[in-house]
Design a binder for these strands. Structure first.
Lengths: 304, 304
DNA sequence: CTCGCCGACGAAACTTTCCTTCACTTCACG
DNA sequence: CGTGAAGTGAAGGAAAGTTTCGTCGGCGAG
């Protein structure tokens, strides 16, 4: 059907600009205009049809096709595909400039990219810095716990609640406390076999340390999730899980990356516990999922 | 105000895999086959015509075109161009690196690594799939809002609280509601100039949609943060921000990756608003930081 | 200066690819 | 068991891509 052309170069992937320069001398004037447009603005040309490109370069469709052939493609369609590829490569090539801090006048697209990058970095750091032995020990304690209390205030309070929500789902008895007084009041109830977990980025949040201390002194197993393993909170922690600390800036408070880091640790705890208690956890998870189903409207309301 | 149509996203450049995953649930079987083929082998599919791809997936041309439309392209031609771009990027860039599922007997170190990877992937997908125009619009609305209500239940409730905590820190009037009744009661108070935000992964959580509807009907600007932009919640949303959907498994409930995704979106909203209201936000942030300082114990208690 | 050859070029015919319409099938629901 | 809505593909229509062919303009010979 279309084997008419010989064993020439396979359609160039990205070395297009070079090819244009090489072949330019052997081109006629109109063809040069086309080649120039194509090399100069791949993205723009990829959006054009033959007719469009012909118009834009002040030539005819036939000339455009002839140029495409000369560049080694079977026709304009394939040149266009290569052009799209080239454009995408160029696009992604100029991405890595986002390592910088977020500035007040950054366009929103940069903000998205930078935040995503930062959080990815935080995750990598946390995973790398997490002590698996400590994690394992904490998981073991949680799995066997009669009762689990989790302390956290402020942003860490949400992380505490997240952990508790998850543990409840697999049938464990867990409570989150963000009220320091109530936390202490409850900590008094704990004893050996129970687990108290404190979540604090600074490692020195008094409101969280206090209940942990009480729990510790009553014989409960204590876990600390903190960005400062050398902070006061570790005094009363049997197991310390370290979260990472990313540099913060004015527009990017520490709360963001610490939260990401804490959540990863919490997820690890959860999955670890779920593994250990799989026989009980799996049906419990399924059941909680089931129970929620009826709270969702039947599908497809937003159709036009 | 705005027509109910949601898929207004401009053709995605490289966020295709993410988009496929996000939209897969709302696809019919044949369309899923097409989407799968496209996501699995971009390079190969880019070489095919509509007819070819239809044949390969055992469907008809019409279905292929429909799928292309659903993914946000005007037609197959444009999907094909994007595919070529994606292929080129993959070629030059890094491998997509599919993460394995978490198994019951995975050692804890693998769990950490896999969770971290999955969340990183989720972040990348979310960032790629986020419609910056919608984000910008939402940021503008929030920045100028007289009052901000945020609805979310379950895991999304924590995200709602996170957003509110942040907004409060920069001096905005924000409230989180996880009680559906109270949420509706409060929604009635909203009017033009106020902003209501609903956070729901499924896009069909009645408890969250209801207050958003009420707010919408009272003239407030409404924002939806959802993993299903075609879900019922979008009906009442002026601006829809799409979070990514990772495949879930038994040990890794959807709540995890959706939470990560939602938090990124929330962070973007926050930073965007902070930028816009910088003169007021900067001192407010500093002040809130200052106010917390005395709640931390002086450093270095745990050294031996 | 005129004529005729030749390559470059574009208009229009032609083909392929893409898109739309519509009727048939299937499945859920009353 | 009928009814309707959603999913699907065949076939015809529109658009893009390709080929054909005739015109134009330059250039050297007569």
């Amino acid at each position: 059907m279309k084997e008419s052309f010989v064993g020439e170069t396979p359609p160039a992937p990205a070395a297009l600009a070079a090819k244009v320069r090489t072949l330019a001398p052997s081109m006629t004037r109109s063809m040069q205009r086309v080649a120039e447009a194509v090399a100069g603005d791949p993205a723009g040309c990829a959006a054009l049809t033959v007719t469009g490109l012909a118009e834009r370069t002040g030539t005819s469709e036939a000339t455009v096709v002839r140029t495409a052939r000369l560049l080694g493609y079977p026709g304009y369609r394939d040149l266009r595909l290569a052009l799209a590829g080239l454009a995408a490569q160029q696009q992604s090539g100029r991405a890595p400039a986002v390592t910088a801090d977020i500035a007040v006048d950054d366009p929103i697209s940069d903000v998205v990219a930078k935040l995503a990058r930062d959080e990815q970095q935080t995750l990598a750091d946390t995973a790398a810095g997490l002590d698996t032995a400590q994690l394992e020990a904490a998981v073991a304690a949680l799995s066997a716990a009669r009762r689990i209390d989790v302390y956290g205030v402020g942003a860490s309070g949400l992380v505490a609640q997240d952990l508790v929500q998850k543990l409840l789902r697999i049938g464990l008895l867990a409570h989150a406390h963000s009220d320091p007084h109530l936390a202490v009041t409850n900590a008094v109830q704990l004893r050996a076999g129970d687990v108290a977990t404190a979540i604090t980025h600074s490692g020195s949040t008094g409101d969280v340390i206090e209940p942990l201390r009480v729990a510790f002194e009553h014989g409960a197993t204590t876990v600390a999730v903190t960005g400062r393993p050398d902070g006061p909170v570790s005094q009363y922690a049997d197991h310390v899980l370290t979260t990472s600390t990313a540099r913060e800036s004015e527009l990017r408070p520490a709360a963001m990356s610490s939260r990401t880091s804490q959540l990863l640790v919490v997820d690890c705890l959860f999955v670890g516990v779920a593994q250990r208690t799989y026989d009980a956890a799996a049906p419990a998870l399924a059941a909680s999922y089931e129970a929620l189903a009826h709270r969702h409207r039947p599908r497809g309301g937003a159709r036009r």
